[in-house]
Structures are given as C-alpha cells and as structure tokens.
Simulated scan of single mutants.
Amino acid sequence: MQLGTPDEVWAGGMPIGRTVELCRRCVTLLPVDGAAVTVRGSLVTKELLHATDPVVARLDDIQFVVGEGPCRDAYRLRIPVLQPDLTAPDVARRWPLFTREALGLGVAAVFAFPLQIGAVPFGVLELYRATPGVLAPEELATALLLADAAAHSVMDDFTRSELFAGPGEDERGIGEIEVPRATGMVAARHGISVHAALAELRAAAFAQDRPLIDIAREVLAGASLRED
C-alpha cells in the first residue's frame, strides 16, 4: 500500500455535514494545527471522513500502513492517547515507525481520542501540533467535549445518509418493529434514555458494518452491547 503524496491522501477524505464543522472547531478552540476524524470497523479497516489539512490526513494514513500509533492505541484501548512531544525517547520505543514518519512531516505532538457511544468504539478524533506542548487542563476538557460531539456528529451524518439512501442500497432496519423493541430493552437494561439506547444500537451496527436490524435481533435474543 502506497502512502501517496499528502495532497492525494487528503483529497481522498469524505467530508460530510457536521463532521467537517467539528474538525474546524477543534482547530479554532484548541492550540492545535490540524484535526481529522476517522471511522473504523476494526483495527484493520478504516475510513478518513475529514481532515483539515494534508499533514493530518497523511498522519492518519501512516498509522494504518505501519500498524502502530496513537490513533490505533486510542481505538484499541478506548482511552485518550496524549503525546505532547514525539521527540521523547520513550515515544520512539513505543511507535518506532510512526514516530520517524510523523517527525518527517513536521509533526511534534499528537492527541488521539476514541469516538464511542456507550461502550462501542467506532472511530478516532486525531489532533496534531507542529510544536511540542501539552494540553492544559481546560484545553483537555474542551477536547474531550469535542470528541463526544464528534461521535454524535458522525452518527448523525451517517444516519442522514442512510435516510436518503439511493435505490439498491440496504434499507433494512427503517421501520422494523425489532429496532424500537431492542431500543427499549437496552434503555431499560442500562438505565439510559431511549435516545441514548438507539445511539448505542446504531454505533454497534456501524462498528460491525452490519444492518441495524441484525443488531436489534441479537439484543432481543439476549446479546449485550456492552462488555460485562
């Protein structure tokens, strides 16, 4: 797999609706130089939805190619991965290939936040800086809020895409009785709102690249969306 030029990688993004605005807000509200949102079905499949510049787009692609980096760890561990100085010796030991390529791009700091609704991770919000530096406590709090907003922005954008799906696309799940029944079951089981329960169902379907109706039927059969 070739990385291509930064401009080629950036052009491959799929900017949609609220996700684009969310990335722009990250750059405006935080001391970072770029932001990107990537969705993942697993550690081996991913789609870059939007990147604010070619550098962060290339940074995302590098991690997918070399199989290491803060975004992969944030998705796998389901926790923010904050690296304020890529020149630190321990960083090169943790991600040797990624660190070399990132420094070559002029990236000095990377902050990755998992996107998830409930217990289901399905993407990553990635931020970078051209100079080393930590996020101050209030900046980290803002970043966490933006990551939560990004998760809902992505789901809203994809839900909108599903509602306007063209002929031949899979439209199962819309109006099926199993979906509202499963939504109510998840809400009751975890003590959350119906809106939050439906969001968890959609996130699970999205993360597994499966129809919503299939996830709903599994829940009705006794499966859980969350790890015990």
Results as ranks from 00 to 15, higher is better:
Leu86His: 07
Ala108Phe: 04
Leu30Cys: 04
Leu77Gln: 14
Asp85Gly: 11
Arg93Ile: 07
Val56His: 03
Ala88Arg: 15
Val66Pro: 02
Val81Ile: 14
Ala108Cys: 04
Asp61Cys: 10
Arg76Gly: 00
Gln63Trp: 14
Pro80Leu: 12
Gly67Ile: 02
Asp90Phe: 15
Ala108Asp: 01
Leu43Lys: 09
Gln63Cys: 11
Pro80Trp: 08
Leu43His: 04
Arg94Asp: 13
Pro70Ser: 13
Asp53Ile: 02
Tyr75Gln: 01
Pro96Val: 11
Val91Pro: 12
Val91His: 12
Phe64Glu: 15
Gly67Trp: 03
Arg40Met: 15
Asp61His: 10
Phe64Lys: 05
Arg100Lys: 15
Ala57Trp: 00
Phe64Pro: 02
Asp61Ser: 13
Val107Thr: 05
Leu86Lys: 04
Ala57Met: 01
Tyr75Ala: 00
Ala102Pro: 05
Ala112Glu: 00
Phe98Glu: 06
Gly104Thr: 10
Pro54Trp: 07
Asp85Lys: 06
Lys46Met: 11
Pro89Lys: 13
Val110Tyr: 02
Val91Ala: 09
Pro70Lys: 05
Pro70Glu: 09
Arg72Leu: 13
Gln63Leu: 11
Asp85Glu: 11
Ala74Leu: 05
Asp90His: 14
Pro70Ala: 13
Leu82Gln: 07
Asp85Thr: 09
Arg100His: 12
Ser42Asn: 13
Ala112Tyr: 00
Ala112Ile: 03
Leu97Ile: 07
Leu86Tyr: 00
Arg93Phe: 08
Pro96Thr: 07
Val56Arg: 05
Asp60Trp: 10
Cys71Arg: 04
Leu115Tyr: 01
Gln83Leu: 15
Phe64Thr: 14
Pro96Asn: 06
Leu49Arg: 13
Leu77Cys: 05
Leu43Thr: 05
Asp73Gln: 13
Pro89Gly: 12
Glu68Gly: 05
Gln63Val: 06
Asp33Phe: 03
Pro70Arg: 10
Ala92Glu: 14
Pro31Leu: 05
Ala109Gln: 01
Val44Glu: 13
His50Pro: 03
Glu47Ser: 12
Leu105Gln: 08
Ala92Pro: 08
Arg76Cys: 02
Thr87Ala: 15
Arg40Pro: 00
Asp60Leu: 08
Val55Phe: 01
Leu77Ser: 05
Phe113Met: 01
His50Phe: 11
Ala109Leu: 05
Phe98Asn: 01
Asp53Cys: 04
Asp85Ile: 12
Asp85Ala: 12
Asp73Phe: 11
Val81Tyr: 12
His50Trp: 13
Leu49Trp: 14
Asp90Arg: 15
Thr38Ser: 08
Val65Gly: 04
Glu47Ala: 14
Arg72Val: 07
Ala112Gly: 02
Gly41Gln: 09
Cys71Trp: 02
His50Ile: 06
Leu105Trp: 12
Cys71Gln: 10
Val56Ala: 07
Arg94Lys: 15
Val107Trp: 06
Leu77Trp: 11
Thr38Val: 07
Ala109Ser: 03
